[in-house]
Write a protein that binds this DNA or RNA. Sequence first.
DNA 1: CGTGCTATCTAAGCGCTGTACAGATTGGAC
DNA 2: GTCCAATCTGTACAGCGCTTAGATAGCACG
Lengths: 204, 204
Amino acid sequence: MSSKAEEPRPYHHGDLRRGLVAAAERILEREGPNALSLRAVAREAGVSAAAPYHHFKDKDELLAAVAHQGFERLADAMAQASDSVENPYQRINALGVAYVCFARDNRALYHLMYDSSRRENFRAEPRKPDEGPGSVTRKALTTAVGEHADPLQLELRQVAGWCMTHGLAEMEASREFDDLKARLGGDKAFYGAVLAQLMPPGPK
Amino acid sequence: MSSKAEEPRPYHHGDLRRGLVAAAERILEREGPNALSLRAVAREAGVSAAAPYHHFKDKDELLAAVAHQGFERLADAMAQASDSVENPYQRINALGVAYVCFARDNRALYHLMYDSSRRENFRAEPRKPDEGPGSVTRKALTTAVGEHADPLQLELRQVAGWCMTHGLAEMEASREFDDLKARLGGDKAFYGAVLAQLMPPGPK
DNA sequence: CGTGCTATCTAAGCGCTGTACAGATTGGAC
DNA sequence: GTCCAATCTGTACAGCGCTTAGATAGCACG
C-alpha cells in the first residue's frame, strides 16, 4: 500500500521505547497533561495503540520513564548551577533557585515527576551515585556548614531546605506572589530571597 | 414500583449537591483517587450519571467543591492547634505541625486540594476573612516577630514558612525519612524539628 | 383544587480512554 | 534457509466525561 515514498517506516520501529518517551514529552509540552493519553502518545510516535504495551507494563510505567528523564535533566541543571558558583553559601542558594527555575520552565513535566514519585514503586536512582539532586545539595551543605556541625542538625537542615525548595516550586506559579516578585525585581530574586530565609548567602 | 419499603428515595434528592460532595469524599477515602470517577460518585449517591451536571459544570467543579471543604477542615484543624498553644513562637511551629498532620491523615484529599488549587479558576475564599490557614499563620507570625520587624522580611518569612510546610506535607510520606523519624521519636517530633529550622520554638 | 412553570432527574448515546488478546511481521541465531 | 522470539497491528471490551431529549415532581398562582 505504501509503495510510494510516504515515509516507509519499517514494521519494527527500532527504538520505540525511547521514541514513546520523546513523544510523550512533546505532547506534554505542546498540549498539556490532559492530552497525555497513551493512545495519543502512540499516535505521535506513529504506532498502534497497543504497541506501547511491549515496552511498558501500563501507562503509569511510561509516565514514570518520562519522569525519570525529567529528574535527570533537573540534576543536570542543578549541577550546572552548582559549578557556576564558588562560595559554598551562595552555592546552596543557587541550587535552590535552579531547582525552582526548572519547575517554572517545565511546569507540566515537574508535576508529572512528582505525581510519579508518589507512587510506591517509583525508584529515582541517579545515573551515578552522588549525582542526584539530593547528593549535590548534601555535598554543598556539608561544605558550607562543614566540620563543626551536629550531624543531626545538618540532616534536618537539609530536609528543611529540600522541603522549602519543593514547596516554593509548587507555589511559585500562584498569582499571590506577583506583587512580591515585582518589588524584589523578578522571579529569580524572589526565589533567592525566600530561600535565603533558611539558606542565607553567607555564614549564619 | 418501589412500593415496598426499599429505601423509597424520592425522584428529587433534596440536597444532591451536598450528597455528591459527601459521596466523593467517601470514595476517595475508601478506594483512592483513581476510583474517583464522576459516574462512581453518582452511583455512590444513588443517582444517574447525568444528574451531577445539574449541580456542577463538570467533574473539575465537583472536585473543587470537595477540595474547598477540605480547606475548611484544614483551617479548623489549624485554628484548634493555634488555640492550644500560648507562646507565639511555639504557636507558629504547632500550626505547621497541624498542617502536616492533616496532610498525613488525609493524603488523598490533600493531593486533591492542591491539584484543584492549581487550576486557574480556583478560589479559596475562607468562610470569614482572617480565618483561612494563611491568615492564621500571618497573625501568629506577626505576634511572634512583632513590631521591630522589616515588613518585607516578615512577608518573606511567611512565604518561606508556607513553602516549607507545604513541601514537608508533600514529602512526609517518603520512606526516606523513616530513619530520621525514628531517631527523633515519632512523626510529630520530626515535623517539629524540621519546621524549627525556620521557626524555632523561641526568639531567634 | 387545578394548572402550568421550572428545577431536577433519567435514559440513551457519542467519542474517547486504558487494556487484553490473537495474529501478522520481522531481524537474527543456528 | 529455517525457525524463534521479539515486535507490532487489528479488533474488542468495559468504563469514562459529557450531551441531548424527555420524564417527574415541587411550587407559585389562578
